[in-house]
């Protein structure tokens, strides 16, 4: 009975968070922005693919006309899930902003309106309040991602004109789950900063600094440090070392540099999310067509990072929410 009462109170808080956000203009603007972009991105990718097919066909026709060997020309293959690259990048960038907005609002509103004082004088423990808030917002993020991934599924099956296999559906579903974990982390970080900082606007700005560093700057640094990225078209291609095994032999002496570059990338949990999802959806070629088990096994460190980041940030937030003196008088 007591347990049921606790659940009831947590659900009440969660429900309020959910409804409140749905009625919030800021939130709705962001969700629409994100949804439009994901769909635009898929459509752009499919146009991009179409353009590649056309240029392949033109090249093929030209070669055939002049009776040349056509072995060197590879036909672009259609993997519908690979169209999702841009979409995933938008979840990384704008989805994270959305989660920041939610985290900020869920604390800032209560602080700014003085309702925190009301909540804390009610017979409900702080930890239940926290759980309710967390649950409500995670459900919101779940609904948004669910909506998005379902849309993705629909669009891809329409564009691809092929039946999406069960394995592909499972892969999309797993990507959906990991997206929720990724977004919840940003929710917690932004709520945490809003709790810690006296000035709410400073906390918001700081959330954006963290966002820009983790989502954009660190992955970019890792990318530009890649030696093969230093020369347009790739260093090895330029000097005629095309065999992968030869490249690896040469790079052996530079493993410590590579390790440093990798650990820099590893410090951003966005990169872990990206590596995992790119593997799942086969956007990274070496994972294309592999089984889910294989991918999960191969990417278990990324999963571990992603899940730990979420647990750590939400635990910290719950501790601050329950322990910190939030009302200074």
């Amino acid at each position: 009975m007591k347990f049921m009462n606790n659940v009831y109170q947590v659900i009440t808080v969660a429900k309020k968070e959910y409804i409140d956000a749905l009625k919030n203009r800021v939130f709705i603007i962001f969700v629409s922005f994100l949804l439009i972009l994901t769909f635009v991105s898929i459509i752009v990718s499919s146009f991009d693919f179409q353009a590649k097919v056309i240029s392949y066909q033109t090249a093929l026709a030209e070669l055939q006309a002049s009776h040349q060997i056509i072995q060197n020309l590879t036909a672009p293959e259609f993997y519908p899930l690979q169209l999702l690259r841009g979409t995933i990048e938008y979840i990384e960038i704008i989805g994270a902003i959305l989660a920041i907005v939610l985290g900020y609002l869920s604390i800032a509103k209560e602080k700014g309106n003085n309702t925190l004082q009301l909540l804390f004088t009610r017979p409900i423990s702080k930890i239940k309040l926290f759980f309710g808030k967390f649950l409500g917002n995670v459900l919101l993020l779940t609904s948004v991602s669910g909506f998005m991934f379902f849309g993705i599924y629909l669009i891809i099956s329409l564009i691809g004109k092929t039946v999406i296999t069960n394995i592909e559906i499972e892969k999309i579903f797993l990507s959906f789950i990991f997206s929720i974990i990724y977004l919840s982390t940003f929710f917690s970080i932004s709520a945490l900063l809003a709790l810690i900082f006296k000035s709410l606007s400073n906390s918001l700005i700081l959330s954006f600094v963290i966002w820009i560093v983790f989502v954009l700057v660190i992955p970019q640094i890792g990318d530009t440090l890649d030696p093969d990225n230093q020369v347009p078209g790739g260093l090895f291609n330029k000097i005629g070392i095309t065999q992968k095994s030869d490249q690896l032999t040469i790079l052996k002496d530079f493993s410590s540099y590579e390790k440093a570059r990798d650990s820099l990338e590893q410090s951003s949990f966005t990169k872990h999310y990206e590596r995992l999802i790119f593997a799942l959806l086969g956007i990274k070629d070496m994972y294309n067509g592999k089984t889910i088990n294989f991918i999960i096994n191969d990417k278990n460190s990324d999963i571990l990072w992603l899940v730990s980041a979420m647990i750590l940030s939400s635990t910290l937030t719950s501790i601050i929410f329950t322990k910190k003196k939030l009302i200074n008088k």
Binding site: R85, E89, L216, P219, Q220, D223, T224, P232
Partner: peptide, 13 residues
């Protein structure tokens, strides 16, 4: 351009 959204972040590419 049909590039990925973050393509501009790589100064070489």
């Amino acid at each position: 351009s049909g590039q990925n959204p973050t393509a501009l972040l790589n100064p070489i590419a």
